[in-house]
Amino acid sequence: MEVRTIKVFTTVDNINLHTQVVDMSMTYGQQFGPTYLDGADVTKIKPHNSHEGKTFYVLPNDDTLRVEAFEYYHTTDPSFLGRYMSALNHTKKWKYPQVNGLTSIKWADNNCYLATALLTLQQIELKFNPPALQDAYYRARAGEAANFCALILAYCNKTVGELGDVRETMSYLFQHANLDSCKRVLNVVCKTCGQQQTTLKGVEAVMYMGTLSYEQFKKGVQIPCTCGKQATKYLVQQESPFVMMSAPPAQYELKHGTFTCASEYTGNYQCGHYKHITSKETLYCIDGALLTKSSEYKGPITDVFYKENSYTTTIK
């Protein structure tokens, strides 16, 4: 009895394709271990004539594949690729409408935090270190965002349907971005203890939790000093293409032309909904596939993004 075979390709990165001759009487799992086709788990399936010449994702289970996976995804987590594939199996079914010149995501599976993050990423200057993220990001900007969303979920250790947080998501993504040249110098002034300067680099240099107003941050924000008295913390120097200011959701007025974009969060910790506000020729609110415009805006804002380049204080 002759062994019926077909020729397929296996890959971990969709760049390096490895030619395989597979036995049609055995499952993919018996031949390769966990195997995925377009995100779908085909591990328990036997090869079919229609699979001839198709590319299958496999887990990096030998040295060659491990090197290829690390170079593309910059992670050695053995569960990463499987999590990416199972997320992709959902995100490829989502709709990605162009809204006001940006790629958004039609609401499904509690994905409003991903839509808000995706919209924000198209408006701030950011370059990702893992080629996987950078490639998928370019495709997302062009309207094909399924891979990018699935990668975000995998890097953030999230599953489809789980509630997510924009600030946490951005923080994970910033860790995989090139923020080497970003720098922030802060000064804390206390009447009792004097003053202390701190220099922050990388992710810490672009994120701040405690106030939404970048102007206020430049002037000074009140913080408790270690001595128990009130101290003032203010920005001395900022070198970065953008800054992200966050605070627990509270009524906040966004003035046209003073910011790049913002995240609105309605609801409580267990259950809520994100919308995205962007400042173009007027203010726009993007909620999944829905767009509304207004000249002014007041609502429960939790993150505001500002364009920056270089700032030095005039406070002496």
Rank of each mutant, 00 (worst) to 15 (best):
N309E: 02
D287F: 00
L283W: 06
N157M: 08
F56P: 00
T11V: 07
G267D: 15
P241E: 09
Q20N: 12
T55M: 08
M245D: 03
M244Y: 04
V206I: 09
L121M: 10
I315L: 15
T312M: 15
A117H: 04
V189N: 09
V206Q: 03
T116V: 14
R83T: 02
D303L: 08
V21N: 13
V304Q: 00
T76I: 11
T116E: 05
Y252N: 03
Q251N: 14
Q251H: 15
L114G: 03
H90C: 13
R139E: 14
K95L: 14
R139G: 08
W107V: 06
C261V: 05
G164T: 00
A250E: 12
Y72N: 07
Y297E: 04
T292Y: 07
K293R: 10
T10A: 08
L121P: 04
T103K: 08
G82E: 15
C112V: 00
F174R: 01
S181H: 14
T258W: 00
K218W: 06
Q30E: 12
N187E: 13
Y137A: 06
Y252S: 08
Q238M: 02
T312I: 13
A231R: 02
I315R: 15
E144Y: 09
I301G: 00
Y269H: 15
G210T: 01
A40I: 12
L17V: 09
Y252D: 01
T226P: 13
M24P: 12
M207A: 05
D63F: 10
T169M: 10
C156Q: 03
P241A: 11
T226R: 13
C193S: 04
C149Y: 01
G228E: 01
P300G: 01
F242E: 09
Q238K: 02
L102A: 08
G143S: 05
Y96T: 02
T232R: 09
V166L: 13
P97Y: 09
G228C: 01
E68L: 06
E264W: 03
M24I: 13
T11R: 01
L153E: 00
Q30H: 14
N309P: 13
Y234R: 13
S86D: 13
V8W: 07
Y137D: 04
I105S: 01
T169E: 02
K158E: 05
Y269C: 11
L126V: 14
P78K: 13
K229P: 04
A145H: 01
N14L: 07
S25N: 11
V221T: 05
K219R: 13
Y297I: 11
C190S: 03
E204A: 11
C149I: 10
L151I: 01
D23Y: 09
G267S: 15
W94M: 07
Q270Y: 10
N14Q: 11
T260H: 08
T55L: 05
T312Q: 14
Y138L: 14
A115D: 01
C225E: 07
L88N: 06
E239H: 10
R83A: 08
C190A: 06
F174A: 06
Y28S: 09
L173D: 04
H276Y: 03
G267V: 15
Y297T: 00
G257C: 05
M24T: 11
T199C: 11
T91K: 02
E52V: 11
V188F: 08
A87T: 06
L283G: 00
A69P: 02
F259Y: 00
W94S: 02
L118M: 09
T5K: 12
C261Y: 01
E162G: 05
M170W: 02
A150Y: 05
C271F: 15
T116N: 09
Q123L: 04
T19M: 06
R66K: 14
E296L: 11
Q230N: 08
A87E: 12
A250M: 14
H276Q: 00
C156G: 07
V58I: 11
S213A: 07
V22T: 10
Q270T: 12
Q175M: 06
Y73P: 07
S294W: 12
S50V: 11
K54M: 11
Q238I: 01
A146P: 02
F305W: 08
T91W: 02
M245A: 08
T35S: 13
Y113S: 05
M24N: 13
Q195D: 13
E253Y: 06
T116Q: 04
A69R: 10
T302C: 15
H51N: 09
P300W: 15
A115V: 13
L114T: 04
P300F: 14
S310Y: 13
E308A: 05
L88M: 05
Q123F: 01
I277G: 00
T10W: 15
I286Y: 05
Y155C: 03
C149D: 02
F80Q: 05
N100A: 12
F217K: 01
K106M: 04
L65F: 06
V42K: 04
S213W: 02
I286C: 04
T11A: 07
G288F: 02
Q98R: 15
L88C: 02
A146M: 04
S294K: 09
F9H: 14
T282R: 09
V243N: 02
D303W: 02
I315H: 15
T11N: 02
L173Q: 03
Y36H: 06
G299Y: 02
I315C: 15
K201P: 00
L81R: 05
L254N: 02
P241T: 06
L37V: 10
Y252W: 14
Q216R: 06
D165G: 13
H276K: 01
D13Y: 04
S295I: 07
L200H: 12
H176N: 08
S181T: 13
Y113A: 08
T43M: 09
S181F: 08
T103R: 03
L235S: 02
Y137W: 03
A117I: 12
K46Y: 12
M245N: 06
K316T: 13
E68P: 06
K293W: 09
Y113H: 04
I301C: 07
G228F: 00
V21A: 13
C225D: 05
L37Q: 14
K191C: 02
S25I: 14
R83D: 06
Q216P: 01
A108D: 06
C227Y: 05
L119H: 14
Y137F: 15
G267L: 11
F128H: 02
D303I: 02
T76E: 08
Y274K: 00
A69L: 10
N16D: 15
D23R: 10
T292C: 08
A247Y: 06
R167M: 00
E71P: 04
E264Q: 11
C112G: 07
N187C: 14
G82W: 10
A40K: 12
E168H: 15
E281N: 09
K183G: 07
A247S: 14
Q98L: 12
G299V: 05
Q175E: 08
L114S: 02
A262G: 07
Q134W: 02
M245I: 02
D38F: 10
G299D: 04
T260A: 11
D180H: 08
Q31G: 09
R167Q: 11
G82M: 15
E2A: 12
G101I: 06
A40Q: 14
M24F: 10
K201I: 09
S294T: 14
G210P: 00
I301Y: 00
G143Q: 00
G220V: 03
T313Y: 15
Y214R: 03
G101D: 01
